[in-house]
Amino acid sequence: MSTLLAPSHTAVDKIPLGRRIEEIKREKGGYYSNVAMAGRLGIHVETLRFMLKGKREIYTFEFDKIAIDLKMSVERILQEDIKEEVAHLSGDLKECKNSAESIQRALRLMEAAQGISEIHYALTRLGIAFRNAYQFTDSNKVFKDSHQLALKMQEHYGETDALYSNVYHLIASFTAIQDYVTASKLLDEIMPFFEAIPSRLSAISYQKAKIEETNGNFFTAKEYAIKSYQYAEQSGNHVTVARTQLNLAHFHYVLSEYKEASELLVRAIEGLENDTRTQLIAHKELGKTLLKLELKEQALAQIQLSLVKAKDLDWKDMIGKLMILMSKACGDPSYAETILNDTTNSLRIRYLASKCLLEHFKTLNDGANFLHYSKITEGLCVDFADVLDEGEL
């Protein structure tokens, strides 16, 4: 790119520069009408309009004048001033760590945001931070606010990417607070925006499957998962297809259709060659499924392979889950004990380890150890279902 030209998009949220300027102008009020601003800049009003609509490039010297007129730094308009902060926050959000710190960081970025596009993306990061901290009511409120901005972005610019991403998060937040009726209505409302995009129809169908699953309607959930798989095949994207195979395998699993689940997981693993983390999830799920099929040697091979990969990725929660599965596969409680005794593991993972140990000693009719781990499990979370059926494992 020539240095004579200003960047075409912002550094963080990739907002088109013309749109970014237009949104800041609109926020600042009538003093920044096109006519008034063009007069101060010494350019024709149509030239300014073309620049803002992306129909004409903006030269660096013009952008400098615009920044001065807006009484903002070039760095603030281009989001260069928040680049490192957002990168730090995004890393923490992806790894689901430093929840309290992430919320504070996201709030600071929210306060600095200007224009509906930047505010929308700032709200999205804040909503994810609240969700990671299990503050689901706050997360839902934030995502509802960002939804209104995403609708405006769709209306003003014909942009569906922000709306699609927002709906994905918003549906999950409604599900977390158990408002399934609103979640279903929202999915039906936004469906027309994505009728010609099979990959997104696939994702929406999967969201419906998750809502039905949460309501205990497992057969209906599986039907939506099948639709999701079919839409994915229409998309022609083999990675999307593989992910929907993984998703569909889950519903076969919860319905105790382990053979069908294992077959889908094998195919998913092949298709996820370039998606290491999702492929690792599929390997882990195959290990669980093979245990249900009582194919312990094959299950152990999957779990050991997955454990090596999880350690390479330094994926702590996944390592914990796989160590628990190692105890199930080997009949050796030491793996789960290691996870339970490591207080740096999440409470949920330690709970799963405790449940695994509880089941192990119950099978051995070891009353003393059963009572010991009963107390620990109860202290973490009371639930006596089969550990292999735990959705978190």
Rank of each mutant, 00 (worst) to 15 (best):
32 Y>C: 06
32 Y>G: 06
33 S>Y: 03
33 S>N: 05
34 N>C: 00
34 N>S: 02
34 N>L: 12
35 V>I: 13
35 V>P: 00
35 V>A: 12
36 A>K: 15
36 A>W: 02
36 A>G: 09
39 G>A: 13
39 G>Y: 07
39 G>W: 00
39 G>N: 14
40 R>C: 07
40 R>W: 07
41 L>D: 01
41 L>F: 02
41 L>C: 02
41 L>K: 05
41 L>W: 03
42 G>N: 05
43 I>R: 04
44 H>S: 09
45 V>N: 09
45 V>Y: 09
47 T>W: 07
47 T>R: 11
48 L>C: 04
49 R>K: 13
49 R>S: 15
52 L>F: 07
53 K>W: 04
54 G>T: 09
57 E>D: 14
57 E>G: 03
58 I>H: 05
58 I>V: 14
58 I>L: 01
59 Y>C: 00
61 F>S: 11
61 F>R: 11
62 E>R: 05
63 F>W: 08
63 F>M: 09
64 D>W: 00
65 K>R: 15
65 K>D: 03
66 I>S: 10
66 I>K: 08
68 I>M: 01
68 I>P: 00
69 D>W: 01
70 L>R: 02
70 L>H: 04
70 L>Q: 07
73 S>C: 06
75 E>I: 01
75 E>A: 14
76 R>I: 02
78 L>F: 09
80 E>I: 04
80 E>R: 12
81 D>T: 05
81 D>G: 06
82 I>W: 03
82 I>P: 03
82 I>F: 03
82 I>Y: 05
83 K>H: 08
84 E>S: 13
84 E>P: 02
85 E>M: 07
86 V>F: 08
87 A>N: 10
88 H>Y: 09
88 H>I: 14
88 H>M: 09
88 H>E: 13
88 H>T: 13
89 L>R: 08
90 S>A: 12
90 S>W: 03
91 G>T: 09
91 G>L: 08
91 G>S: 12
93 L>S: 09
93 L>C: 09
94 K>Y: 13
94 K>M: 10
94 K>S: 12
95 E>H: 10
95 E>T: 10
95 E>C: 00
95 E>N: 12
95 E>D: 13
97 K>M: 10
97 K>R: 15
101 E>H: 11
101 E>M: 06
103 I>E: 08
104 Q>H: 08
105 R>V: 01
106 A>L: 05
106 A>N: 08
109 L>F: 04
111 E>P: 01
111 E>W: 07
113 A>Q: 10
113 A>G: 05
113 A>V: 07
114 Q>V: 08
114 Q>K: 14
115 G>Y: 07
118 E>W: 02
